[in-house]
Design a binder for these strands. Structure first.
Lengths: 208, 208
DNA sequence: GTCTATACATCGATAGAC
DNA sequence: GTCTATCGATGTATAGAC
């Protein structure tokens, strides 16, 4: 077999792998792990069931690959807390912008919500996947935000990491309760009220 | 059939219902909805599968009954925020006590964690169950705590409800990240640091 | 490598004896 | 009311042709 033909075959196979990963992602995000079947994954991917098994071994391995792919690529942008794009603004503006961006992203992107549902729901049966989420998504956000607070000693924040956990926790819980658990139908709350109160708590006024 | 015999039959039937509910609860909390089978539920309950169906109709109805039972009875105590038991203490002590109790309960009781996993994980496919959780568990806690802050105007809290959401959110996220998602192995944090920072944010010092 | 066809277990749900 | 036995559908996974 010629070298070009080898590469062609290899890229075709890689294409199938991506197609399977994409189909499996849709299926798992929609129906959960136990609620998904390899038959439907094969159909959604446009390949036969045997091809799915030849590429990913078994259902658990495929689920692992899907979640890791989501945690490493697809969702990195959603939680991207780049200080660079906020440079030149006051801490108050920066914190407000980060909070607004988090809530907007999670509210508009159904993949974010489905991913959080599955990663929390399966965290008991798939602890390694939960840890991958913590390492790849939660930890970077917390550490980057903590460093930002440490870089601004004029804010006089005694415990930056605990403060960041309070901020992130408030925002995540807002998304979980209002959007994912459909709480906005029952006890609505404007996100601006939460964000303003949060920023006012963290950044104390000078005149008091 | 005599009246006493009727009552005996009725109570026997009610006993079976409770046994089924208990067995189904174990099964659903451990394996999730799709991961549970009616065969295993029957085995765990000590009755035949046909009896399970004659009492609860189908799998979905049984799941509904289990979740509602958990949300209405089993978990009410875990989130019981009774001001009465905190009377006579300062607001600072009361808030610390509430936060400590929430974290302690959720950390020690695996049923609380499994319930949160399943109610969040299935909130997309069972929105009514998520709403039942909001109405029966989240809403009462938020409203009671909000009323407490309103009853203490000397704290000068501009937006009591938003403030409560921040507090509850911080605590729930701490439990989710550290315990349920196994984050304590990766990025440990003493709960006291979170609680102290939280209370200091909400209750401003007089001397500033 | 990828397909069709199939093996074998388990699923939700029910019929019929008692 | 509760059981055993069983139905048809669907589950994961694989064998064998190409």
């Amino acid at each position: 077999m010629s070298k070009t033909k080898q590469n062609l075959e290899r890229s075709k196979s890689a294409e199938k792998s991506r197609a399977i990963l994409k189909g499996a992602m849709e299926e798992f995000l929609k129906h959960g792990y136990a609620g998904s079947s390899m038959d439907k994954v094969a159909k959604a991917s446009g390949v036969s069931k045997a091809t799915v098994y030849s590429h990913f071994g078994d259902k658990e391995s495929l689920f692992n690959a899907v979640i890791h792919d989501l945690a490493q690529d697809r969702l990195k942008a959603s939680i991207d807390v780049q200080q660079s794009q906020f440079s030149g603004q006051s801490p108050r503006e920066v914190l407000s912008a980060i909070a607004t961006k988090m809530i907007t992203n999670a509210t508009q992107d159904s993949v974010v919500q489905d991913f959080m549902r599955i990663i929390i729901g399966e965290s008991g049966r798939f602890p390694e996947l939960a840890k991958a989420y913590v390492n790849n998504l939660a930890k970077p956000v917390i550490e980057t935000s903590t460093q930002y607070l440490k870089d601004h000693p004029e804010l006089e924040i005694k415990d930056p990491e605990a403060t960041v956990r309070i901020m992130i926790g408030s925002l995540v819980y807002f998304i979980v309760l209002q959007e994912m658990m459909h709480g906005k139908d029952i006890m609505p709350l404007e996100s601006d009220r939460l964000i303003n109160t949060l920023v006012n708590l963290i950044i104390k006024d000078q005149d008091c």
